[in-house]
Design a protein around this nucleic acid. Structure first.
Lengths: 136, 136
DNA sequence: TGATTACTCTAGTAAACCTATAGGATAATA
DNA sequence: TATTATCCTATAGGTTTACTAGAGTAATCA
């Protein structure tokens, strides 16, 4: 399941992408337009800023804005930041790999085999989709 | 993330599929072979029996066995029983649809748009994979 | 019949995770 | 200096996950 965090984060990014570049948009405006709890959105936007997607400006006329061009923001990186691994199980994760306790041999594991295919199919979608594809 | 329940269930099904048909295999044997807590596996196999994948026999020489041919068991149905929806968000789920509270218009939602693609790509994998593809 | 075996079923629980919310600190602007 | 808006940490409260306990039921075999 996609967390609310990821969902809200994506919506906020899309909203920001629809605005003129480098024009700060206030949290309150995004929250209201997308029906998101403002306080919750604060923490989400903060993490998107710390990971290099957003810039911010404090004080009057401040807000958040996209740093990169929407067509340069791939879903793979957004999802990994907000949601975590794209793989459904750590033993097939490219960026968050972890061995299974119970598996003596990954290469013989049926779940492993299946989940590699699922991962690759998701990766294909996320890899060819950028923020600019989500607008409009 | 794939739950342990689904992972263990898939492993158990694969193990059963590798055995001669209609020969009951005890929970204890599956649990030991796949390194799964026996008590936990009990509840998983029970739910697979109740949903028509497995048959069971009580008493000495009893156990669980596959009812259908492995090539007739599609991953779509196994996953839906064990894990729940294949979609990552209820508003794009075919079998577990639910409207989002915050979305006034699904068709204009960027998350909706993206998640339909992800759902379809997962569905393609699960739809063309059967239990027999996972053996060996 | 009675002992053993093995599945059936209901509850309970500890830990982890999710979805916020609170409240003060910090910085920019006017 | 007053106002605006982000920054940051902590924590509350609910839900889900991953088991575990223990008693019940049915089948087999001596």
């Amino acid at each position: 399941m996609l967390s609310k965090k990821t969902k809200y984060g994506l919506k906020a990014l899309t909203y920001l992408a629809s605005k003129p570049k480098n024009e700060p948009v206030q949290i309150a405006e995004i929250a209201e337009h997308e029906n998101i709890s403002q306080k919750f959105l604060e923490t989400i936007l903060l993490s998107l800023r710390k990971t290099g997607f957003l810039g911010s400006k404090k004080g009057k006329g401040g807000g958040y804005y996209l740093i990169k061009d929407p067509s340069d923001i791939k879903m793979t990186s957004v999802i990994r930041i907000l949601e975590g691994p794209i793989a459904m199980i750590p033993c097939v994760s490219l960026n968050f790999y972890e061995k299974c306790d119970d598996c003596p041999d990954e290469n013989k594991c049926s779940v492993h085999k299946l989940m590699i295919q699922v991962r690759d199919s998701a990766l294909k979608v996320y890899g060819q989709t950028t923020l600019s594809d989500l607008i409009g």
